[in-house]
């Protein structure tokens, strides 16, 4: 590390600038959440927790939060199941179109959400499915699967096939081998993928807009609807602040888990 002094200072300034660029708007929201007035203007009218109390009292916020959690858990469950199955299939078996499957699983997250949303909406209507929580979960799962798939397949590539062979060599059946060897090896990858899937589902707006019948309101949808109302805005700030805190935690854990190697002594 022998960059010239000037370059080092420039890099430091650039890093700080990028971080400010990313986080300054979030800081503004966080500050407004403690504003005692309804007007969003400097200087603040005063500091207070009144919007926090109001937010917790509102049943709309609670219902929306609960709907988001249900949608997130549902989508995560589906993603864990399907994502790991596809990862196993692609990693462990040679079949026609194997490469294509990997690509197709990846595609939904790259597709514009609006397209996915319209497509799902049309499909559900055609199939005669009533829009609601189930359709939200299915919609979210389409792009959550890839997160689990990516995590699990990356882990499977690092786990030697010899581990499973050793297990069967020592008398374990396929099921016992999965239970005692394979699952522990991919456990943290599943957790990491699951957390990311949940986080992604939790703040999804576009696909949700097209797949909710109007009966279910997730937190992002609720925010969008209240944001435009002057009376709703301060509460939105509070909810937004809570969401920031809520989403930081799983992403941070997921990153740590994804980094944890299978061979590390703390792997269990």
């Amino acid at each position: 590390m022998h960059e010239p002094r000037g370059a080092r200072i420039a890099l430091r300034i650039a890093t700080i600038a990028v971080l400010v660029f990313i986080y300054a708007p979030l800081a503004v929201i966080a500050i407004y959440a403690f504003n005692s007035g309804t007007n969003q203007a400097w200087p603040l009218a005063g500091l207070s927790f009144q919007w926090f109390e109001r937010a917790f009292e509102q049943s709309g916020v609670r219902d929306a939060l609960w709907a988001s959690i249900r949608a997130g858990l549902g989508a995560t469950a589906v993603a864990l199941f399907l994502g790991s199955l596809v990862a196993f299939a692609v990693q462990r078996f040679r079949f026609f179109g194997r490469e294509t499957v990997g690509f197709l699983v990846l595609l939904p997250i790259a597709l514009p959400g609006i397209v996915t949303g319209i497509a799902l909406n049309s499909a559900f209507r055609t199939a005669g499915l009533e829009l609601g929580m189930t359709t939200i979960v299915i919609g979210h799962a389409t792009f959550c699967v890839v997160l689990v798939y990516n995590n699990v397949i990356a882990r499977l590539r690092r786990v030697s096939r010899h581990l499973e062979e050793a297990s069967m060599d020592l008398g374990a059946t396929q099921w016992q081998t999965f239970r005692y060897v394979t699952f522990p090896a991919i456990r943290t990858a599943l957790l990491a993928g699951g957390l990311l899937a949940f986080a992604l589902s939790f703040d999804e707006v576009i696909v949700t807009t097209f797949t909710t019948g109007g009966g279910e309101k997730t937190i992002p949808i609720w925010i969008l609807q209240n944001y435009t109302r002057t009376s709703g805005l301060p509460i939105v700030n509070v909810v937004a602040l809570l969401l920031i805190l809520l989403s930081v935690i799983p992403v941070w854990i997921a990153q740590r888990l994804a980094g944890a190697g299978t061979g590390s002594p703390s792997g269990r």
């Binding site: 030697s160 010899h162 050793a166 060599d169 059946t173 060897v181 522990p184 299978t262 061979g263 269990r268």
Partner: peptide, 21 residues
């Protein structure tokens, strides 16, 4: 027969020890 129904055991080149145990 599958490996788990044979009375033989293997020592692998990369040892294949279970890292979580």
């Amino acid at each position: 027969r599958p490996p788990y129904e044979r009375d033989v055991n293997t020592v692998f080149q990369d040892y294949a020890l279970f890292p979580h145990l």
